[in-house]
Lab assay of single mutants.
Amino acid sequence: EVPFKVVAQFPYKSDYEDDLNFEKDQEIIVTSVEDAEWYFGEYQDSNGDVIEGIFPKSFVAVQG
């Protein structure tokens, strides 16, 4: 069931425009499960802007 919160276990950096880049310990709200390997989610950056994109499930852990 979406949405749910995950926390980055590792930093994720990608050159693909659709990917969500983040640092370790970033909290991310997952709004869609793309497939067995990928989530789609969002978070607010330090400027208060909402950043969204896809990212690999293996880089995050589900909270709770």
Rank of each mutant, 00 (worst) to 15 (best):
residue 1 E to C: 15
residue 1 E to I: 13
residue 2 V to K: 06
residue 2 V to S: 05
residue 3 P to E: 03
residue 3 P to D: 02
residue 3 P to V: 05
residue 4 F to M: 03
residue 4 F to A: 01
residue 5 K to D: 01
residue 6 V to T: 04
residue 6 V to M: 01
residue 6 V to A: 04
residue 6 V to E: 01
residue 6 V to P: 01
residue 6 V to I: 01
residue 6 V to D: 00
residue 6 V to R: 00
residue 7 V to H: 05
residue 7 V to L: 06
residue 8 A to D: 02
residue 8 A to L: 04
residue 8 A to N: 00
residue 8 A to R: 00
residue 9 Q to L: 15
residue 9 Q to H: 09
residue 10 F to G: 06
residue 10 F to T: 06
residue 10 F to A: 10
residue 11 P to M: 08
residue 11 P to W: 05
residue 11 P to V: 06
residue 12 Y to C: 06
residue 12 Y to H: 07
residue 12 Y to G: 00
residue 12 Y to R: 05
residue 12 Y to T: 03
residue 13 K to I: 11
residue 13 K to T: 09
residue 13 K to Q: 10
residue 13 K to W: 13
residue 14 S to D: 00
residue 14 S to L: 02
residue 14 S to R: 04
residue 15 D to Q: 12
residue 15 D to I: 12
residue 15 D to L: 11
residue 15 D to M: 11
residue 16 Y to H: 15
residue 16 Y to F: 12
residue 17 E to H: 10
residue 18 D to T: 15
residue 19 D to A: 15
residue 19 D to T: 14
residue 19 D to Y: 14
residue 19 D to F: 14
residue 19 D to K: 14
residue 19 D to E: 14
residue 19 D to H: 15
residue 20 L to C: 05
residue 20 L to H: 01
residue 21 N to Q: 10
residue 21 N to D: 05
residue 21 N to A: 08
residue 21 N to W: 12
residue 22 F to A: 01
residue 22 F to S: 00
residue 22 F to G: 01
residue 22 F to L: 01
residue 22 F to R: 01
residue 23 E to H: 05
residue 23 E to C: 09
residue 23 E to L: 07
residue 23 E to T: 07
residue 24 K to V: 11
residue 24 K to S: 06
residue 25 D to H: 09
residue 25 D to L: 06
residue 26 Q to G: 02
residue 26 Q to E: 03
residue 26 Q to C: 04
residue 26 Q to I: 06
residue 27 E to I: 15
residue 27 E to Q: 08
residue 27 E to D: 06
residue 28 I to R: 00
residue 29 I to F: 10
residue 29 I to P: 03
residue 29 I to Q: 05
residue 29 I to N: 07
residue 30 V to I: 03
residue 30 V to R: 01
residue 31 T to Y: 06
residue 31 T to W: 09
residue 31 T to E: 02
residue 31 T to P: 03
residue 32 S to I: 07
residue 32 S to N: 11
residue 32 S to D: 05
residue 33 V to D: 08
residue 34 E to C: 15
residue 34 E to A: 14
residue 34 E to P: 15
residue 34 E to I: 15
residue 35 D to N: 14
residue 35 D to G: 14
residue 35 D to F: 08
residue 35 D to P: 04
residue 35 D to V: 05
residue 36 A to V: 08
residue 36 A to K: 10
residue 36 A to W: 08
residue 37 E to S: 07
residue 38 W to V: 06
residue 38 W to H: 14
residue 38 W to M: 09
residue 38 W to L: 09
residue 38 W to Q: 05
residue 38 W to G: 00
residue 39 Y to P: 00
residue 39 Y to D: 01
residue 39 Y to I: 02
residue 41 G to F: 05
residue 41 G to L: 04
residue 41 G to K: 00
residue 41 G to D: 00
residue 41 G to P: 03
residue 42 E to Q: 14
residue 42 E to G: 10
residue 42 E to P: 01
residue 42 E to L: 09
residue 43 Y to V: 02
residue 43 Y to I: 06
residue 44 Q to R: 13
residue 44 Q to S: 09
residue 44 Q to L: 13
residue 44 Q to F: 11
residue 44 Q to W: 07
residue 45 D to F: 05
residue 45 D to V: 08
residue 46 S to H: 12
residue 47 N to G: 07
residue 47 N to S: 09
residue 47 N to L: 07
residue 47 N to W: 07
residue 48 G to S: 03
residue 48 G to Y: 02
residue 48 G to M: 04
residue 49 D to N: 14
residue 49 D to K: 14
residue 49 D to E: 12
residue 50 V to R: 13
residue 50 V to Y: 08
residue 51 I to D: 02
residue 51 I to Y: 13
residue 52 E to R: 15
residue 52 E to W: 10
residue 52 E to M: 14
residue 53 G to H: 02
residue 53 G to V: 03
residue 55 F to L: 00
residue 55 F to W: 03
residue 56 P to Q: 03
residue 56 P to V: 04
residue 57 K to F: 08
residue 58 S to V: 10
residue 58 S to H: 10
residue 58 S to N: 11
residue 58 S to P: 05
residue 58 S to G: 07
residue 59 F to V: 11
residue 59 F to Y: 13
residue 59 F to D: 04
residue 60 V to M: 01
residue 61 A to I: 13
residue 61 A to M: 12
residue 61 A to V: 14
residue 61 A to D: 11
residue 61 A to G: 07
residue 61 A to L: 11
residue 62 V to L: 14
residue 62 V to I: 14
residue 62 V to C: 11
residue 62 V to E: 09
residue 63 Q to F: 12
residue 63 Q to V: 15
residue 63 Q to R: 09
residue 63 Q to C: 13
residue 63 Q to E: 11
residue 63 Q to D: 09
residue 63 Q to P: 14
residue 63 Q to N: 09
residue 63 Q to W: 11
residue 64 G to Y: 11
residue 64 G to L: 10
residue 64 G to F: 09
residue 64 G to N: 11
residue 64 G to I: 12
residue 64 G to K: 09
residue 64 G to Q: 13
residue 64 G to P: 13
residue 64 G to D: 12
residue 64 G to T: 13
